[in-house]
Design a protein around this nucleic acid. Sequence first.
DNA 1: ACCTGAACACCGTTCAAGT
DNA 2: ACCTGAACACCGTTCAAGT
Lengths: 205, 205
Amino acid sequence: MPTPPRTSLPEIVAAGRSILEADGLGGLTMQRVAEEVGVRSPSLYKRVRSRGDLIGLIADSVADDLAATMDAAASDDDPEDDLRAIANAFRAFALAHPNGYALVFARLPEDARIDPERNARAAATLLRTAGRLAGPDDALAAARTVTAWAHGFVTMELAGAFRLGGDVDRAFAYGVDHLAGALESSGAPAPHVKAGRSQGHSEAR
Amino acid sequence: MPTPPRTSLPEIVAAGRSILEADGLGGLTMQRVAEEVGVRSPSLYKRVRSRGDLIGLIADSVADDLAATMDAAASDDDPEDDLRAIANAFRAFALAHPNGYALVFARLPEDARIDPERNARAAATLLRTAGRLAGPDDALAAARTVTAWAHGFVTMELAGAFRLGGDVDRAFAYGVDHLAGALESSGAPAPHVKAGRSQGHSEAR
DNA sequence: ACCTGAACACCGTTCAAGT
DNA sequence: ACCTGAACACCGTTCAAGT
């Protein structure tokens, strides 16, 4: 005799994500999730293969939001401004959702990885901006340089690894500015060189 | 009646580190460690406050090795060559010890963090090289930019996040070259400008 | 002083039994 | 078709009891 479902996969993922954000990966237990969606933990296995599977689904969900945030930050006007805006949005997202963010770049088991199309879509905005700065041939390498830097920076910031004093905000701005200058100078078509670049590295022409 | 110790803290840390490297953080159980050093798991708590504490000690140990590796890579000759050498050594270490490396930059609880002096010592080599490239005022921001980039890059590489094709080795080389160029151009004393810089970004002057 | 077995609270996961 | 209690194997950690 059929029984009506008492929860759903989206609800489970959403509950898992909010628990993760609140209490970290260690606090994300199947029992907490079950309690949150009003069910007993064995029932979760009707919609989810394992805790690892659930973690992968949460990572997908966060990755989508991060991609949307970066997308919204780009205006497709001046590429250097866009790079700065994307980087700032990226950092703000990571600082606002540290535990979810960590999952997006975590070393997950093969089957829990973010799927390829989602990955490509998430990379698209930055890839386009990087291509406009560094030229089509270097677009991928340039995008990887920027992503690596931004990810490394916020990861270290979240880990509390910047403990030598100094202004962390300034170090971030320093990084974007110098990366933008370095990538742009690397032989792209460089269609419109604006008169007043932002600051500090005008010698990099 | 006193009993002679059957193990020691260094032995425990070393065992934990080799288990971590072989089986990941999930495989690092107190029972596995105890078995490895020939004792029962409750005995470990004589030398270690908790599993988290042990993880912190392992992180310290790996951080020391990483710092030594970077130190050995620098020759204090041409700073750009040094930057490249340090970055390559950093990446090689991370790829060779992925699980231990992850711990060094992990978001550990406050009390398990790598201690400040160790942190400063680990940063010293790169800070010096960055200072020779970017000038004393920008040394810290420049070192942070390079460290963030290198850490982000290898983390993404280890996570399998580079899935858009392309040559990952080339992307790494591209990153060092452009970072070196960008930092150097940022207004340092720049004592000896070599005639033949490496490649590709000679327009960045 | 160090080590141990037993115990506790807590996991993820399975499964037979219920509706 | 979905949900549940009970059970299993496995954690980290504590502690009284042994030497």
